[in-house]
Design a binder for these strands. Structure first.
Lengths: 335, 335
DNA sequence: TTGAAAGCGCTAACAC
DNA sequence: GTGTTAGCGCTTTCAA
């Protein structure tokens, strides 16, 4: 038997309104009555029906979290941060994994019209920026990603700066012929990471040879393949800066196959600091993104929007940091 | 502006009831009217309010998926399978990641009383079997795990048989002093995998030395540490069968550090076939669990229960298979 | 085949 | 401070 608020009213002898007030924490009930009512409710194990609440109050207390592919190691920690923040604030997460299918992604946005959630947290998307902005005009939204519109609330790291710093780091390790394998170049963050790399080279007075820039797609295979290309050329690089860890791992495997010793003959730098990067051999030197914190902050911002708090649009930038591991020489020893 | 069914009624000129019927697919409307109505609805982009539907029909069309820790690589593919099946059948997934906290796990079960979902899919749990059975009496439930009660609907592989086969495989590869690192021994599946191992040794006429059995906890560190113990003993094994891949990777790292060459001097076998196992060096020979299929099947069973179809309790067993990779010798060459 | 209307369980406006 | 009641948007029973 599941109780309704009417049952509780009957049992306690108060009206449904009083029960509702006691439950909501709003005032309109004397403190002692509230205590008494809550005690009985607790005893009975009564939990208000969410659908009724939602119907009445126009709130679902759900957040739709859009994820391109939950199998992608990058997203785990983000979700974790989102989950924690959401749960603590009384929200549940509806998992919007769309398996890298734009069609499924749209399906979820359509569902939003049926009020399955109060807001959307976009952890990743295949849609054009324009489309995202469009949806953000229909539903409360926070985006974790690079920044592509003043109209959005965005959580991200400064990809340009992080890439700049990473390139500088490789230089400090003694590498001079630094190549780059980019991510999908359509993504703003790929461009930012590329720009940061270029700017660093420029400031270092190293000339930026276009042959040293290869265009990948964030996948292991592209890192592997493009590293082979780079290392098979007659003027091969002595370091490769990959725009994510998976490609960096691919690059390492390619280098190993070609007989390059890492980190002496070749330095490899990744980006993201997924867990995997410290589980492979060699452990990958990389740029750490505070994904858990990014998730929490994004959820916090969204919930603030949902609860009517003032949230200014624009970028919310968290710090990235370099994690030296075994795929680069020690920056201190070599200068 | 968001439409309600009343708006649609007004616009089309039909009654609310007719709209509802057209939408639900049940009969009571003439085919042409239905078509007309659906066309208009589609044009307008009307989607019925889920909360109202739920309140009325006592269905949430949500499935609560309980996951100990989404960062654990084992669960990704399972969720994927669940998501696919659920979405296709019109269900959404509420993510019940409880971060290995039994308290949070219970919090989610409590939420169920507020009808946040129609049923529970337990991908993993920290609760006693008894508690799971208790909850399964309150809510529709399917469990992905080893089997611990006739009262539950359970999806799993035959861990005993898989471990038996894996041990046999090691033998066929020419290994004779086969050690075992178990998972958390409280878990039924750890016991089954241990039993399968023992049975294989017995049938092979190899004596099962208790010194060759180490009790781990599924973590990389325990694989690493226990492998070191095994390999430092005076009569060290020539193969280690770990009860999951993470421990197998730990064992490989330990072996490498001690100067053992894999797979010649030492064979290592894992279990699960997480993606990681083919990304490390050496690639781990392991027992493949069809996780995607397990997820789909489990979701299917749960939805069948929810839609009133007959689902018999008990085990639903999928096949595991051995994936030979680089951490064992070739079974064909050595005999 | 179609429409009117009750009512799911709750919140909040209103009355006392 | 407390109770009465309308009504959120839908499904479904009942009547036509």
């Amino acid at each position: 038997m599941r109780y309704t608020i009417k049952d509780i009213a009957k049992i306690t002898g108060y009206s449904v309104a009083t029960i509702s007030r006691a439950l909501s924490g709003k005032d309109g009930v004397s403190e002692e009555k509230r205590k008494e009512i809550l005690r009985i409710i607790d005893q009975l194990g009564y939990i208000p029906n969410q659908s009724a609440r939602r119907l009445r109050s126009k709130e679902t207390k759900n957040i739709l979290v859009m994820i391109p592919d939950i199998e992608n190691y990058f997203f785990n920690k983000l979700i974790k941060g989102i989950e924690k923040e959401a749960r603590e604030k009384g929200y549940n997460i509806i998992l919007g994994d769309f398996s890298d299918s734009q069609e499924i992604e749209e399906e979820y946005y359509r569902m939003m019209k049926g009020q399955i959630a109060d807001g959307i947290l976009i952890v990743g998307s295949l849609s054009e920026p324009q489309r995202i902005v469009e949806i953000s005009r229909q539903f409360p939204m926070v985006v974790i990603s690079d920044y592509f519109s003043d109209e959005l609330v965005t959580v991200c790291v400064d990809n340009f700066k992080a890439a700049y710093d990473a390139t500088m780091f490789l230089y400090k390790c003694g590498y001079r012929r630094i190549a780059k394998i980019t991510g999908k170049i359509g993504a703003m963050l790929s461009q930012d990471r590329l720009k940061g790399y270029k700017m660093a080279l420029e400031n270092l007075g190293l000339n930026c040879d276009e042959k040293y820039i290869k265009y990948g797609d964030f996948k292991y295979e592209s890192g592997y393949k493009l590293a082979k290309e780079l290392l098979s050329a007659k003027s091969y690089p002595d370091a490769i800066f990959c725009s994510n860890d998976e490609m960096a791992i691919g690059a390492c495997d390619a280098a190993k196959e070609l007989g390059f010793s890492i980190p002496d003959e070749l330095g490899v730098m990744g980006f993201d600091d997924i867990e995997l990067s410290s589980m492979v051999t060699p452990k990958i030197t990389t740029v750490h993104q505070p994904r858990y914190e990014m998730g929490r902050l994004a959820a916090q911002l969204l919930i603030n929007i949902l609860t009517g708090k003032e949230v200014s649009k624009g970028k919310y930038i968290l710090d990235a940091s370099i994690v030296p591991r075994d795929s680069t020489r020690n920056a201190n020893i070599t200068k």
